[in-house]
Amino acid sequence: MIDVQNLELSFGRGHHRVQPLAGLSFSVAEGETYGIVGESGCGKSSLLRCIGGLETAWTGKVEIAGRPAPQVRKGADCRTVQMVFQDPYGTLHPRHTIGLALSEPLRAQGMERSTAKIADALRAVGLSPSFAERFPHQLSGGQRQRVAIARALILKPDVVLLDEPTSALDVSVQAEILNLLADLRKEMGLTYILVSHDLAVVAHMCSRVAVMQSGKVLEELTATDLRHGRATHEYTFELIASSKLDIAA
């Protein structure tokens, strides 16, 4: 479903050159949840932004659903990949009602906009259709994140990029959102790339996990390997130790 080959991203020149992504490759099968872990600044978010088309200066090859994804996305290109962001407070426009936030993607794609469609989208993420008339400041963090998921899914994408979707939520809400995401993946046949620094979340959600360090994929583990601490690189062991992942789990 997703095939990334030799993806590179750099900004600036000479001494000021920074390279968040230094040629990384991986592929994700259809219907899979692929995890990406690593410490802050290792390029996890840059990777998602490249795949999602928010960064345009990358080189290499990104193939989504069998078609090469262009650097600059326009019109219908945007429908295949959508993203859910980390911060529930920044993800929605503060002056737009939830209904408007959900109808904007439909408007942008020239698709039919109707209250029924928005009500369906809200029900799919476990919210009452009456939420359409509220403003984001009247919603809790978990509710906002549900709206963000509804907004990502309303265009019926194949791939959803999850950029630490639960790290800003408290633990019980975190579990609700993760279960919702897992259910939606089964129902709609979605493919996820989940970026997180929380190894427990990744081990729970993903079948395979890539460990990233300074813009490269250090190694790829299965979720079982991760749970049992069967890594090959020193860095991965450190990461597992620092996250206090219960190895017996």
Partner: peptide, 26 residues
């Protein structure tokens, strides 16, 4: 640089729409 602008770009909103419906009101 807010996420809601990134989201708008991801669903393919035009620059015109982003400027007048998202940025100007704020």
């Amino acid at each position: 640089n807010s996420d809601f602008i990134a989201a708008a770009r991801m669903y393919g909103a035009s620059s015109f729409r982003i400027i007048f419906a998202h940025v100007v009101p704020l």
